[in-house]
Amino acid sequence: MKIKELVDRFGLQVAAGEAGLDRDARGGYCGDLLSDVMANAPLGCVWLTVQGHLNIVAVAVLREMAAIIITGGREPDAETLQKAHQEGLPILRSPHSAFELAGRLFTAGVGSASGS
């Protein structure tokens, strides 16, 4: 599923990285410990986190992620958005918890063979 489609279907706010909205989401991952995400997030995934530090952009680029979704209505740091903009990496915001949003994404087929 394209990131653009996720934005429309799940009412996500695009905070940065419009240039990357055409990317395909290949699976998903939830995590706020960046060492864990670096080691275990699937390549090309969408990543749900409450962490807003600049390092999330580097982690996302390293794992060739399609997008980052900041959950729980949190605000990422300004420099994070700036860097994501430079990288063309979509940063999306959702007022919902990672649990709730991940459930919806999974149900919609993100992360399963048929939907990804």
Binding site: L34, H53, N55
Partner: peptide, 9 residues
Amino acid sequence: IINQLGFIP
């Protein structure tokens, strides 16, 4: 910091 942020900014 390394566990939380993956590396030292």
